[in-house]
Amino acid sequence: MKSLFNPINHSPQNDIDRVERIAEPNSAYTLGPLESGSPCCDPEPILSIKNLSLHYAEKMALDNVSLDIYQGCITALIGPSGCGKTSFLSALNRLTDMIASCRVSGEISFNNINVFDSALNVQHLRRDIGMIFQKPVPFPLSIRRNIELPLREHGMHRQTELDERVKQVLNDVGLWQEVKHRLNSPAQALSGGQQQRLCIARALALKPKILLMDEPCSALDPISSGVVEDLIQSLRGLYTVVIVTHNLAQARRIANYAGFFWVKDRAGSLIEFGKCQQIFEAPQHELTAAYINGSRG
């Protein structure tokens, strides 16, 4: 049994990792390029998070989180409720700005742009970093207008162009056949799974680079959940996906990378980050192992 308190870098079983990490310029806080997982993954960091801390009023929700999100990969964030995973996601597209009591410190760079730059146009940032919520939130509009509203907001006004984009993204999420005859009917009449796919389509319509997903399947029935999961699988390589999930099996099925969050000193922190396979099969940290095995959390 290896020492569970050893930092990952010094773990004797990980010689290959160590060699690669030394070759990697960002080795101080990343785990290096992808080894397992789907071949489309490009081991280039698109988002670099350094020392991210987050407070709600006086309460600390996230403590000093640093990690890289790799382009084209699916990164799963796992851990028990209330350990700051959702807060972490919201910081990435600065949705935390919406919460008055929320203060964020640290650095996030997205394609070498400082996300916290006060001169940055957040509307553009959020167009590039889309987000899907746990509960599907179709707007109280028609299916078509749900997708058109953000497109118009970002300057697409020609109806032919809009129609084409609507059809394309609905096709991408596998909804086109189901709704093509009722594009003008209320989106809120769709089933839960269809609503969630519509929300994904709505985000994809803006051609984002990154898609943040906050437990996108947990409010859905098992069948819809499967459909949405397949959809997420199909986004691999085309988009960078960061997904928060409580479903360990799901994380294991779809993710290339996984990060494990836990509440430490009353604040959420990142305990371990690594390739999905490594996190699930050879966790380096005691807590990760306990959580994966189901003895904690």
Binding site: Q123, R127, F133, P150, L206
Partner: peptide
């Protein structure tokens, strides 16, 4: 939140 996340 959804609207903001879409850059609206």
């Amino acid at each position: 939140f959804s609207a903001a996340a879409l850059g609206i």
